[in-house]
Nucleic acid binder design. Structure first.
Length: 424
RNA sequence: GCGACUGUAGCUCAGUCGGUUAGAGCGCCUGACUGUGGCUCAGGAGGUCGAGGGUUCAAGUCCCUUCAGUCGCCCCA
């Protein structure tokens, strides 16, 4: 069928049947953030383009070809946020949140935008739950953050068979150049056997070549020199400290020497959670440390770390694994009316019950009694409240329990209390 | 941005070698002696077969273009 208007390619409507799951996931997320001391921050949907090119990196794929960038009427270049971290750091600096002292822990649930070809688990507008911890340099902060992530997935019902955690360190400004050079020369020696993109990356961004998935590249990349011997003392100690803490916390992970991330701002710790039942887009969480980003964006040098979780992908996996998320509650009662005067009475009664905090539904299309009962059943109401001329005359309603079929007369004045106690 | 596959009712899909008024199940609406739901039965609404063009006496069916979707590459959440 030809529709006059449809949603833009790669974006989705979240319909009422689904939105209950979204709300439930979001409230679980908020509860997790509360327990870990993160406070909600909401930043605008668009920012100055430069914020992203500076932070994510000019040569990354996201910046070079996937951003929704446009000019406003004042000729400023603006970009729909392609990720959550840079805007949070910008707001942190702009409002001098550092002045609050203590731990600066910020969390968000936000849409983000990337102009890629849509496929399973990849959309042009998607949503991310993220957390940023600004100001903590110690490995224990990394451990707490990763612990938060694994706890969240555990609480959602994921287990070792459904997700995997990969961990790596990519060094810092001090030690990475040496490693980069070593890797680069290794890749140059093997350039002839690498794919075209890898060859291209040798000069531009050799560390990105490590997570190439072309089969023929695998043997060479597997044999690439690991970073460990090149790490400076501080980075090495940080990673060892984190590894030890994660063991003590009982967090299962896999050290993946080839885990590089698509953002240039990462330093030291990087991690990723992969879902095992998704298609090619199997990363459901990515994060790490970004100790130089605050400085990069104009602040004083401040260590920081964070992660983002893909909402659509998590929901998709939970659906495939049949993991429950609480659903919206049906109304307590459906008001069924018979006759014109009863319709007015029914409306007034419904309003009264709603003012008392009860969820109540009523029909407005003058359907037959039978049809109204069908609606009551379909919306899964626990009770039908029937009002006709008889009830009006007696100041009562007929209250029918739709599960037990029991029906009895209840005085209008006692209805709220009756529903409240019966609905327990 | 590139590739493969797929577009028939709200949903899931039939539709033969091109051949009359395009079908089913589910869902939806109505009814089964006129104030009672789920089950059953009966009836009904709903489709310019994604769009445009072509071949043909004749196209849902064949060809081209286009749009959309899905999955994959790339990249990532």
């Amino acid at each position: 069928m030809e529709l006059k208007y449809r949603a833009i390619k790669g974006v989705n409507d979240i319909l009422p049947d689904e939105s209950g799951r979204w709300q439930s996931l979001e409230s679980k997320w908020r509860d997790l953030c509360r327990r870990y001391g993160y406070r909600d921050i909401r930043t605008p949907i668009f920012e100055a383009t430069e914020l992203f090119t500076r932070s994510i990196g000019e040569v990354t794929d996201i910046v070079s070809k996937e951003m929704y960038t446009f000019e406003d009427k004042g000729g400023r270049s603006l970009t729909l946020k392609p990720e959550g971290t840079a805007p949070v750091v910008r707001a942190y600096l702009e409002h001098n949140l550092a002045a609050e002292g203590g731990n600066i822990k910020l969390c968000y649930f936000t849409p983000f935008f990337r102009q890629e070809r849509p496929q399973k688990g990849r959309y042009r507008q998607a949503h991310q739950m993220g957390a940023e911890f600004i100001g903590a340099a110690e490995p224990s902060a990394d451990a707490e953050l990763i612990g938060m992530v694994t706890q969240f997935f555990g609480e959602l019902g994921f287990d070792q068979d459904s997700i995997g955690l990969s961990l790596n360190t990519i060094g810092c400004r001090e030690c990475r150049p040496a490693y980069r050079e070593a890797l680069q020369s290794y890749l140059r020696q093997n350039a002839s056997t690498l794919c075209a993109t890898c060859q291209d990356r040798i000069e531009r961004n050799p560390m990105r070549a490590l997570d190439c998935k072309v089969p023929d590249c695998q043997p060479i990349l597997d044999a690439a020199p690991p970073i460990d011997p090149y790490l400076c003392e501080a980075c090495s100690a940080h990673f060892e400290g984190l590894s030890a803490l994660m063991k003590q916390m009982g967090i299962v992970y896999e050290r993946n020497h080839r885990l590089a991330r698509g953002f240039d701002y990462y330093t030291r710790t990087t991690f990723e959670v992969q879902g095992k039942f998704l298609g090619a887009q199997n990363a459901i969480c990515g994060g790490g440390r970004y100790d130089t980003l605050v400085e990069e964006l104009g602040g004083t040098p401040t260590p920081a770390l964070g992660f983002g979780i893909g909402v659509e992908r998590v929901l998709m996996m939970m659906t495939e694994m049949n993991l429950p998320l609480s659903e919206e509650e049906p109304p307590v009662a459906f008001v069924v009316t018979l006759g014109d005067s009863a319709r007015t009475e029914g409306l007034l009664l419904a309003q009264l019950l709603r003012q008392a905090g009860l969820a109540v539904e009523i029909d407005h299309t003058a359907r037959s009694l039978k049809a109204q009962m069908r609606l009551a059943d379909k919306c899964r109401a626990r009770f039908a409240i029937l009002i006709g001329d008889n009830e009006i005359a007696q100041g009562t309603v007929a209250l029918k329990n739709l599960q037990t079929h029991e029906q009895r007369e209840v005085l209008r004045g006692a209805l709220i209390e009756t529903l409240r106690s019966e609905a327990q």
